[in-house]
Design a protein around this nucleic acid. Structure first.
Length: 456
RNA sequence: UCCUGAGUAGCUCAGCUGGUUAGAGCACCUGACUGUUAAUCAGGGGGUCCGGGGUUCGAAUCCCCGCUCAGGAGCCA
């Protein structure tokens, strides 16, 4: 299996791709793509050609081509599809370092009135044209980083003894019982919901295969309207039998370090296009920072970061009370001092989900952890050691007013060979947003789903 | 859902305390140019001022209602 190298290139016609041009210096190539940009100066025309792998400048000199081809070059519009033949030349005047001396152009389709011009556009307009916006260089770079992040995650788990165990998207009940779910009618069996997390199923899978991960889209019908929320996003959720909270946090660090350095290694060009300060990413090395929830509260109060409550239109600031969950203000204040991620662990039980295991040393706490990313990356990971005691879990389900029937199979896991186990969820888009430095989470998923937007 | 803000040409915007024929840049069309990078220069076409109601001699401008969108909060990845 290790010797197996997938390859299908020999079955395709021999064309060339822009990302491989350095191999063809001095040779004639045929490129297939789209006109990214065109300018000209009399007898000289410059075509920025993109083919999905990169952009290269193609130079058309009137003396080198037929009159027909030159006139075609002059009339080419943005995003017209063309097949260009020419020789590859190294040239410092070209942005990519290479240039194509054009000998022939074949028009596939002449584009008229491409909506996205080289001028600025508003967010709303760009989102309405997301299907075309993806062609522009920054979006193109973000999507390539996203693909690298996903590959890093899969490589990391596959290479460390984890098995991919996909969880269902249509589910009969809420996983955590807290957030609002998308609802649909499921034949004669009643309501079904789009999954907000694969975790409960991952736990069952971990009891069968030891170390597993699920990777898929999840759905939250919350009316969130911020630059870090989507209603549909992708999450990877490892779940490990016999892992305690410490193991869980160690694994989360290993994973995030691997992702960041995989992207640094394979996406230099993309990060440059995005004008990302990569020295900040270089610093993401183990060990990350760690503090308990209680330490974090002490830190907030020592640094006078209050809790702001609104009472009857009046804003009241008070010392941060132990037991309250952190909001955006607290998280940002804590992270401002750090140049790499920080894990906050041992939260109060009442602000966390029912399935988390109580701290045996303090029943007010749960063995939970969140990883916050620096540079306003926010919460990228949430995880915990799971409650593995049958009675304790059953009581939690009852306390939360969750339907016991629907959780019977989940309780079974605590009945038949229950073991300590842990896991976490890492948000793909939040991670890509942090690594790319994108301003808004909608830019890091090909087709974002937000409360007021489902097209395209 | 709550708070705040925005909607004028295909796009990004200007348009003052209401005033007569609503403007610019880009994009598009015509022409000039052998090194452009959001090229430059000359010329040209292009408007339901978000919708409805009101105030006024007169509304893009002021008031009310609605629609659409954006940012933030809470929830969380």
């Amino acid at each position: 299996m290790s010797e197996f190298q997938p390859s299908v290139t020999s079955r395709y016609k021999t064309y060339h791709y822009i990302e491989n041009l350095s191999q063809y210096v001095g040779q004639e190539v045929t490129l297939r793509g789209w006109v990214y940009h065109r300018t000209g100066k009399g007898k000289l025309q410059f075509i920025q050609l993109r083919d999905g792998t990169g952009v290269v400048q193609c130079v058309v000199f009137k003396g080198n081509v037929s009159e027909e081809v030159f006139n075609l070059a002059k009339d080419l519009t943005q995003e017209s599809s063309v097949i260009i033949k020419g020789s590859v030349r190294e040239d410092p005047r070209s942005p990519s370092g290479y240039e194509i001396d054009v000998s022939d152009i074949k028009l596939v389709q002449l584009t008229k009135d491409y909506p996205i011009t080289p001028k600025e556009h508003g967010d709303s307009f760009l989102l309405e044209h997301r299907h075309l916006w993806l062609r522009s260089s920054k979006q193109h770079a973000i999507m390539r980083v996203r693909a690298a992040v996903v590959k890093a995650i899969r490589d990391f788990f596959d290479g460390n003894g984890f098995k991919l165990m996909d969880s269902p998207i249509l589910t009969p009940n809420a996983c955590e019982g807290t957030t609002t779910l998308f609802e649909t009618q499921y034949f004669d069996l009643g309501k079904a919901y789009l999954s907000q997390s694969g975790q409960l199923y991952a736990e069952a899978s971990a009891m069968a295969l030891g170390k597993v991960y699920t990777f898929g889209p999840v759905f939250r019908a919350e009316l969130s309207k911020t630059r870090k929320h989507l209603t549909e996003f992708w999450m990877v959720e490892p779940e490990m039998a016999y892992f305690d909270l410490e193991d869980d946090m160690d694994l989360a660090e290993d994973l995030v370090e691997y992702i960041v350095h995989y992207v640094l290694k394979t996406c230099q060009k993309e990060l440059q296009t995005l004008e990302r300060d990569t020295t900040k990413l270089e610093k993401v090395r183990r060990p990350f920072y760690r503090m308990t929830y209680t330490e974090a509260v002490e830190w907030l109060n020592k640094n006078n970061i209050p809790l702001i409550r609104k009472v009857g239109g009046q804003e009241i600031a008070e010392p941060f009370p132990w037991g309250e969950d952190f909001g955006a203000v607290q998280e940002e204040a804590i992270m401002e001092q750090f140049d790499k991620p920080c894990i906050i662990h041992h939260y109060p039980a009442k602000v966390k989900a029912f399935y988390m295991k109580r701290d045996p040393e303090n029943p007010e706490l749960v063995l939970a952890m969140d990883m916050l990313a620096p540079e306003k990356g926010g919460e990228i990971i949430g995880g915990s050691q799971r409650e593995d005691d049958y009675e304790a879990l059953k009581q939690r389900i009852i306390d939360e007013n969750l339907p016991l029937d629907a959780f019977q199979w989940y309780l079974d896991l605590r009945k038949y060979g229950s073991v300590p186990h842990s896991g976490f969820g890492l948000g793909i888009e939040r991670t890509v947003k942090w690594i790319t430095g994108a301003k808004h989470i909608r830019e890091v998923i090909p087709f974002p789903r937000m409360i007021y937007r489902i097209v395209p």
